[in-house]
Every structure is written in C-alpha cells, then in structure tokens.
Amino acid sequence: MTFTLAVDAMGGDFGPRVTFNAAQQILAERSDLSIQFYISSSESTWLESELSQRAAACSSTDFSDIQSRFHIHYCEQFVDMSDKPSHALRRKQNSTMALALKSIANNEAQACVSCGNTGALLALSRYTLSTLIDVDRPAMARDIPTAGKPLLMLDLGANIDVGADGLYQFAILASAWRKAQGVKKPKLGLLNIGKEASKGTEEIRLAGQMISELEGIDYVGFVEADELYQGELDIVVCDGFHGNIALKTSEGLLRHISQQFDLILQSSVLGKALSFFTNPVIERFKRQLDPVMHSGALLLGINGLVVKSHGKSDQEAFYQSMRYTLAEIELGTAQRLADEMDRLSA
C-alpha cells in the first residue's frame, strides 16, 4: 500500500526550508510514501538550487527514487501568519494551504500537514472539505504524554470561546475518535478550576450535566490541571483558550526542567561524572517528554485528515507531525470516526 501526503510548505516561524528538509527526511525513510509539496513560486530559485546540490551529493539512484515521489507545486499565493481567516478564505484560494487541502478533496492526497496560520487552516479546511455531520465547530486535538496512557486534549486553540453545547460536541468528537482507535469505553474529564459540582462557569457546569448523559463513555466529572499527567484519563475537554494556555505552560515547564537538569549535572565534578554514565538514559527520558516528539494536532471534526504542526516547528517537529499523520492514515481512524459519532449521538 502506498500513501500520499499534501504538505503546505509555507507558514511557520522558520520558513519553507524546514518543511522541505523534513519532507526529504521522511521520503528517504518511507519508500511507500509520496508527497505533494505546495510552495510559493517566490521560493523556486533556492529550491531548485537545493535540489541540484542534493543531486550532486547523493547517488543518482537514491536521489532519483526520492524525487520521483516528491511532487512540487508552485503556487501564486501563500497564507501569511498575520492573515485573518476571513481574508484567507476570500482572497487566498490559490494559496499553498488552500491547494494542499483541495488535493484531499480531489483524492490526490490522503491527508494534509501544515505549520501555517491556525485560524486560516481551520477556515479553509471547513470550506474545502466541510465538517462531519452535526459538527458545528471542529476542534484542535492532540495526544500528550502522561505517566500512563496518552491523553487526548481538546480544544487547543481553534475555538477560544465555547459554550456548553460546544464542549458537549467536543466530548462526542473526542470519544468517537478514541473509540475509532479501539478504546471501548473512553475515560473522559472536563477541565475546571475544581472538582466540586458548584465550581466553574455556568457553561462548564451545564456542559458537565450534558456530558454525564452520554452513553458508552466513562465520564469522571470535573478534573483540575494538575491531574492531566497522571495517566488515568483518555480524554480531557476544554475550550481553546484554556486548552492552549495549559498546553503551552506544560511545554514551557518541560523545557525549563530539561534545562535545569542539564545545568545541575554540569555544575559539579560529580554531576559531570554521573552524566557520563547515565547520559543514554537521561536523553531517552528527555526525548519521551520533549514536545517536539509529540508534534502534530488534529483538526477533529473536519471531513478529512488535517494535521496542524506548531508554528515554531523546526525540521524535527515537522517530521514528527508527518510521522503522526502517516500513523493515523495507516490506522484508518478518520474513516471510522463518522460511524462512531453516529452511535454516540443516537
């Protein structure tokens, strides 16, 4: 079986060189993969030069094999990180992002990966691919590592202000996704400032009542942020404002801990000696917690597989986003999602 990814090469803080290098990296590893690479025509000079340099440096057989599966599409436009979603929707239909999404609609690719403007990606995805039946607001969802099983957290920034109905819909979406992955009775919590029934806003309390009536899930009620990494939950639901803050605070804390750990080990002779013997274990531990290794968030509720990589993605982060996307294609979760949603909503 062969797979095809559409890559929006533009957007992000580090430009298209990151997406290009990541694409070449994964193509070298996966002979069953092809990439439709959508890039601004203004980047053609350096890209053609880079390809020429690679051709000279690699064996002709290896280079020819990889490039035969790397299809470049030069586009007139690209979505800037500062573009409003409405502007991208009205004025950027020939952009790298829009055309990458259209390749899914035209059955030319099985999924799209982008590190571009989140709001624009959401708006263009809804316009190009539509949403699943009964989904008003797609959510940005991502698995985060915990002490036990991965935790699916949503929304992470696609919907800043969400009422009870929106949170209820996120619970259905996430539960259906987990069930499509094979989890028979997902354990779900609603993020709040306390576990007591009286805590939180009126909308959160109402959402909790609605979610508690869902069949086929194990709803544990309200959960606090310090419970996220215990490894007991399959899903935590929240609005995009609080979800984004919680996620980025966690990522910042993990980077801080990693940096402090290195400083402590290098601050004494004993620490340096210890790090020499334990370095492989330490690096494996840090790699397991590194947000880069868990890069890639789903636009859950879109009628197609669209993955948003972080705007600050470097080559490794974008590469991991593509690996994650390929894993989801292979599992076929997106194809089973609609059926599971029908069962939960019945």
Rank of each mutant, 00 (worst) to 15 (best):
N106T: 15
R255C: 11
A98Y: 04
Q266D: 15
R205C: 05
Q335S: 13
K248N: 07
T19M: 04
A297N: 04
S114H: 05
M210G: 01
L298K: 01
Q259K: 12
A123T: 06
N244Y: 06
T61V: 15
S198P: 03
A57T: 14
E196H: 06
A139N: 01
R142I: 10
R343Q: 14
S60T: 15
S42A: 12
L337N: 00
G116D: 01
F3D: 03
T146Y: 05
A297G: 06
S40F: 06
D136Y: 10
S31M: 09
L121S: 07
L101H: 03
I172L: 10
Y324P: 00
L214H: 05
G296P: 02
V79D: 00
G332A: 09
C75V: 06
A22W: 03
E227D: 14
D314F: 08
D226M: 09
V236M: 05
G240Q: 04
S313W: 04
Q230V: 13
A28P: 04
D290K: 08
Q320T: 10
T278Y: 12
Q36F: 07
E328K: 14
R323Q: 15
E224M: 09
Q77L: 06
I211T: 03
R287E: 12
A158W: 00
L99V: 02
F222P: 00
S114A: 10
L326C: 08
A225K: 06
E330Q: 14
K185L: 06
H87P: 02
L344I: 15
G182P: 02
I211G: 01
V7H: 00
I264F: 12
Q335L: 11
L121M: 15
D8T: 07
T61H: 08
D83Y: 01
F241M: 07
R90Q: 14
I72M: 09
H242C: 14
I133R: 09
P291C: 11
M97E: 01
K102S: 12
N94W: 08
T4Y: 04
D83T: 01
G243A: 07
H294Q: 11
P280G: 10
V306S: 00
I144H: 02
L152Q: 02
S52E: 13
A56F: 11
A338V: 12
C115A: 15
K92M: 08
L156D: 02
C112W: 01
M10S: 07
D165M: 11
H87L: 12
S321P: 02
L51F: 10
S82L: 13
Q67E: 15
Q36K: 14
S198V: 13
L152M: 13
A141Q: 00
K185V: 08
A147M: 14
R142D: 02
L254S: 11
A123H: 02
G221C: 07
P186Y: 03
S60N: 10
G240A: 07
Y168D: 04
V236C: 05
E202Y: 07
L254G: 03
S250A: 15
L298E: 00
L326D: 03
I245A: 05
T96N: 04
G311L: 06
S41M: 08
I257N: 05
L331S: 14
